[in-house]
Nucleic acid binder design. Structure first.
Lengths: 203, 203
DNA sequence: GTCTATAAAGAGATAGAC
DNA sequence: GTCTATCTCTTTATAGAC
C-alpha cells in the first residue's frame, strides 16, 4: 500500500535507524509542528547526525510523508473491522480510545492536519485521501445497514459519516487544547449513542 | 477588551500601516502558517520593509497575538446575540456562513489553531479562552432554555455545547481540506436541526 | 550507513540615519 | 514612522572521508 508496509518483513528488522528516526520525527512534530521542527534536533533525538538522517530521508518533506504513511489507520483498515453494520460506530470509539492511549502520536497528527489546511500544503492530498477513505468506510457501512433493514433508509449516509468524523476531530481538538481525555471519550460515546438511536428510529 | 478594540476611535484612522500589516499577516498565516511565514514577506505584502513592520510589532509573536485579538468572534459576542434561548443554534449557523464568506481569514485561523495544538505553543491559552467563551455561551443558553421550559432538563448542557462546537470545527476542516462550502453549511444545518429536535423532545 | 565539514540561504531582531 | 545596513543564529542540503 505504501512505502512502509510494502517493505518486505525480513528487511524491517534491519531498519532500526529508520524506525528511530520516524518515532523521533513524530514526537518533534507533536511538540513543534512540521515547520517548527528541525532535522538536526530530530536526528539528535534519534541518536545520529543530521547527515545520517538525510541518508534515509533525502528531504524534510520525504520524512514527513514517511511519518504520515507509517500511520495508516489500522483500526478501520485492518482485519476485524465490520463495514456492513452499525458496529462501525463502536469501531470509531475504539479508534478514539487508541488515540487517547497514544497522545503524542495523536497530537502530532492533529498538528500536521492543521498545517495541511494551509493553502500551499504539499500534504493536503494525503489528508484528503485519509479522510475520504474513513468517511467512505463509514458511509458504506451505514448504507449497507440500511439495505439490510438494520437502519432507516431515508437518510444521507455520506452526510452522517462526515458528521461523525467531524465530531471525532472537533472533540479531539478540544481534548488536545487542554480538555480531559475522559470528557473526550464520554462525549463521543454520548454522541454515537444518540446517532445510533437516530439511525435505527422509524423514519 | 484587547489592544485593537481598546484603541480610541480617532486613532484608528491614522493606523493604516498597522491595519495593512495585520491583513497581510492573516493572509500569510492562511497560506504558510505561523512558523512557515516570514516577517520579510509579510512586510513586503503590506508595502513596507521588515524594519518598518518591527516598529509596529516588536516580535513575530506580538504580531501573531495582534492578529488573533483582531478577530474576536463578534457574531456571538456582540449585540444581537440571544443567549437565553435555543436561537443560539441559529447564531452558530450564521457564524459558519460568515466563515464561509471570508475563507482566507477562516483558513488562517484553522491553521493557527492546528499549530496551537503543538505542545509548547505560546498561543494555546488564547485558543483555550476562545473556545471556553464560545462553549460557555452556548451551554448557558441551553441551560437557560431548559429552566424556562423551552428545552428538556435531563441533559448535559456543557457536553451538548462542546459537541456542537466540535461539529462546526470538524466540518470546517473538511471544507478547508477540499470539500465544498455548500456541503459544510448543509451538513451543519442538518446537524443543528437534529440537535434542536433532541433538545426539545420530551425526556 | 554514518560521520565531519561546509556551503548557501533565510530567519528574527538591532542600530542608527532621516 | 520608515528606511538601510548589519548582526547573529538556524535552517536545509551537499561533498566527500571512513
Amino acid at each position: 500500500m505504501n512505502a512502509t508496509t510494502a517493505r518486505a518483513p525480513h528487511l524491517v528488522r534491519g531498519d532500526q535507524a529508520r524506525t528511530r528516526i520516524l518515532e523521533a520525527a513524530s514526537e518533534a512534530f507533536a511538540r513543534e509542528g512540521f515547520n517548527g521542527s528541525s532535522l538536526d534536533r530530530i536526528a539528535k533525538a534519534a541518536g545520529l547526525t543530521k547527515a545520517g538522517l538525510i541518508h534515509h530521508f533525502p528531504t524534510k518533506l520525504d520524512l514527513l510523508r514517511a511519518v504520515l504513511d507509517a500511520r495508516e489507520d489500522e483500526a478501520l483498515v485492518q482485519a476485524g473491522r465490520d463495514t456492513a453494520t452499525l458496529h462501525v460506530l463502536d469501531t470509531l470509539l475504539m479508534v478514539a480510545r487508541r488515540d487517547v492511549a497514544d497522545e503524542t502520536r495523536t497530537r502530532g497528527f492533529a498538528v500536521l492536519l492543521g498545517e495541511a489546511v494551509a493553502l500551499d500544503s504539499p500534504v493536503a492530498d494525503w489528508f484528503q485521501g485519509h479522510y475520504g477513505q474513513l468517511t467512505d468506510e463509514i458511509a458504506s457501512a451505514i448504507a449497507s445497514a440500511a439495505r439490510s433493514g438494520t437502519a432507516r433508509t431515508d437518510l444521507d449516509a455520506d452526510a452522517i459519516a462526515a458528521e461523525a468524523v467531524a465530531v471525532m476531530d472537533g472533540l479531539q481538538i478540544q481534548w488536545l487544547l487542554g480538555g480531559s481525555a475522559e470528557a473526550y471519550l464520554e462525549r463521543l460515546e454520548q454522541y454515537l449513542e444518540r446517532l445510533r438511536s437516530h439511525l435505527t428510529a422509524v423514519g
